[in-house]
Nucleic acid binder design. Structure first.
Lengths: 243, 243
DNA sequence: TTTATAATACTTGTATACAAGTATTCTCGT
DNA sequence: ACGAGAATACTTGTATACAAGTATTATAAA
């Protein structure tokens, strides 16, 4: 067996989490990073002994991951679906869909408080860049979008986000970690895009909103390309371990 | 305790379902019908003894219902959220959102097979009306929309539907049951609306699509009003049982 | 009567046990 | 060598057991 002791998911984010949550997050990261390959059949019993826990938290994790569409629960075993380019495109379809909806609602509403909150998060992101903390940056990046979505107080839009968020979070984590190593200069552009986003909300300029949304989308497209690179690096690394 | 032996969810739909699924469906119906009132705190142990099953399937059910936003999992006990008018509006926001998206995709695609399939389902619905089978009608109604959504083969849009479907299904079931008793004449209009829907897809007429979508939306609004009536009837019925 | 504290009852999350079902493998008769 | 069927190993879903934590209640001291 290859060395899999190192956890991909930030341990500090799990301080109060249950075993089930830990397994869920870690498993998700391993699947999305490509460490567990697409097509692999997961067995509850095997996972339980691998993670040295009982089947209860494993079952819980598999249910969650199935609802996120990254595994498929079948009669015998759970098959890893993983994320192909098709799925990446689909995830961003949904992101554009719900963020456009949210924007449309925000136009009708007082947003000064939201803008304040977003500015704070943006400052946090800058600090994270300064100290090269990829995980913290990712956390704030996800929080940025979640804050916007929460602002319209729409439980069923939030439901969609809740389903999308964990996968988004994993993608962003993996992408940012590799970018901090290789494409550090990207971050000023990311910050600019987020600032544009805030401006759009502040001025309630629908046109600017659409523009910034799509710029963010394009930016995210690049993130995905980065992810492909990091997947390749990772699988190369695993191969090297087998030498 | 009031008489709760009768199951709200159609037993025949659960022929191959696990205990967990049965509990989930039944609990959902009881919450959405108003039989279990909003604000009620559900205890795993109490539910387990009420349903005469262990905590395992109950836990499973509560997790699912929480992800559907009809209960809230808290430190101690699960609080029933239920559906206020706000949530009804939000559910249909999301329905409009995804069905519009789906329509947009269908315009670019071969739809003859889909139209055939939908026509078949519509025939089924007519038969269900003829024999006054509210449950069968509801089943076909839900299937109609699911078939359209599945046609674009988009796993993340399908994910949204998967989360929305159970609640939709429950709403439609309750509404149709009361309509078959009281507003039988409604059904010809419902059938017409669905036919319009099919025509829109067939002719790829975007304008007609939007029109039929909103007609269907308006129709569904009425369903909700019916639901309120049926909730009131139901709660009156419960009160009468206490006499 | 009020307030601290101890006892009790209930809660969640995890582990383990078991039943029923489904693949896989093995063995035996042809 | 090959196919039928038995034996075996694995699967899921449910029940039960247990540990650790949290509310509630009861008791006792001020």
């Amino acid at each position: 067996m290859t060395k899999t002791n190192e956890l991909l998911y930030p341990t500090k984010w799990l301080s109060k989490a249950s075993t089930g949550d830990r397994v869920t997050s870690e498993l998700r990261m391993r699947i999305i990073s490509g460490m567990i390959e697409s097509g692999t059949v997961l067995s509850e019993n095997k996972l339980a002994s691998d993670f040295a826990v009982s089947r209860s938290p494993i079952r819980e994790a598999l249910k969650v991951l199935a609802s996120e569409n990254i595994i498929r629960l079948e009669r015998m075993g759970a098959t890893v679906v993983g994320l192909t380019e098709k799925e990446y495109a689909e995830i961003y379809d949904v992101r554009i869909l719900i963020e456009t909806f949210v924007f449309e609602r925000l136009v009708r509403v007082e947003t000064t408080e939201l803008v304040m909150e977003l500015s704070k998060i943006l400052e946090m992101m800058k600090v994270a860049i300064k100290y090269q903390d990829a995980d913290e940056f990712s956390y704030q990046d996800v929080l940025f979008h979640e804050t916007i979505i929460r602002a319209i107080d729409h439980s069923y839009i939030l439901m969609i986000w809740d389903n999308l968020k964990p996968v988004m979070e994993s993608l962003i984590l993996l992408s940012m970690r590799s970018r901090f190593k290789e494409k550090y200069e990207d971050f000023s552009r990311i910050i600019n895009n987020h600032q544009l986003y805030i401006d759009a909300i502040e001025t309630k300029d629908r046109e600017l909103m659409v523009k910034s949304l799509h710029q963010n989308f394009d930016d995210v497209q690049e993130k995905v390309e980065d992810l492909w690179r990091s997947q390749q690096l990772l699988s190369k690394g695993v191969e090297q371990q087998n030498d």
